[in-house]
């Protein structure tokens, strides 16, 4: 069974069809990439899956459960984490707090136990911190641990965002242009980390990406889009040589 299944998704904004009848599946354990020129509707698809946008038609199912009408916060509870194109971190807080916030979906305490900080709340807190440290170790973020996000360089923010998504302990990770703003070296590191995330943590990855090198290195399957519609889906080399894809990028 596919992990994420979307069929015939369409959405339009004020007469502009941003996404037109797009269907795709993400299989467990793979890296699935969406490529396409700017304005092709790639990020819109992520926003549809995150339920920030309401689809005009079509449906989505995650792990066999229909999520077409789920509220946005439910998506994270079900096990889909995401990052954002221009990073959306909690600016005034430290890296540590940012990562701890991601554990919200795993909370077992309620308002009253939190107010009194009962032993259960303390145990949970220690447990969260232990798990956060694991992620910090995995992505080598020790040096940024206590720093406020506001002062971090862009590359580090990108990594913190991925770390934060991992702290949700998701089944599916949506990466929206993870390499944008990174230098070639950092992008290379990123490709190793994506492979690690899939191999070691067993998390499925779907990403929107412009860097064809990165896409070709890590992806198992690629979907190419243009003008809101799907052009082709297949393995990276196949897509890179697909006539429709070449036309979309290079013109006739």
């Amino acid at each position: 069974m596919s992990l994420l299944e979307a069929h015939d998704l369409s959405v339009s904004f004020g007469g502009i069809k941003a996404v037109r009848d797009v269907s795709f599946t993400v299989e467990p354990g793979e890296v699935f990439s969406i490529i396409g020129p700017n304005g092709a509707g790639k990020t819109t698809i992520f926003n549809l899956v995150s339920r920030f946008y309401e689809a005009d038609s079509g449906g989505m199912a995650f792990d066999g459960m229909d999520i077409t009408g789920a509220p946005p916060h439910r998506i994270a509870e079900l096990g889909i984490a995401r990052t954002f194109q221009n990073t959306e971190l909690f600016e005034h807080e430290s890296v540590l707090t940012n990562l701890l916030i991601a554990h919200h979906v795993h909370r077992r305490t309620n308002l009253v136990t939190d107010l009194l900080f009962l032993p259960g709340a303390r145990r949970q807190e220690l447990d969260f911190r232990r798990r956060v440290e694991d992620v910090i170790d995995l992505l080598d973020l020790q040096s940024y641990r206590e720093q406020p996000i506001g002062g971090l360089p862009y590359g580090a923010r990108k990594m913190v965002e991925i770390a934060r998504a991992l702290c949700l302990e998701p089944k599916l990770l949506l990466l929206d242009e993870p390499s944008s703003g990174l230098n070639p070296e950092e992008t290379e590191d990123l490709s190793f980390w994506i492979e690690d995330i899939v191999a070691e943590l067993g998390i499925t990855v779907a990403m929107v990406e412009h860097d064809m090198n990165l896409v070709a290195t890590v992806s198992d399957r690629v979907m190419a889009m243009a003008d809101g519609a799907e052009l082709a889906t297949g393995d990276p080399t196949e897509i890179q040589n697909h006539p429709d894809v070449l036309r979309a990028y290079l013109g006739d």
Partner: peptide, 9 residues
């Protein structure tokens, strides 16, 4: 936006 994607209602 981020809060929602972290599962916060």
């Amino acid at each position: 936006v981020s809060a929602q994607s972290m599962g916060i209602n």
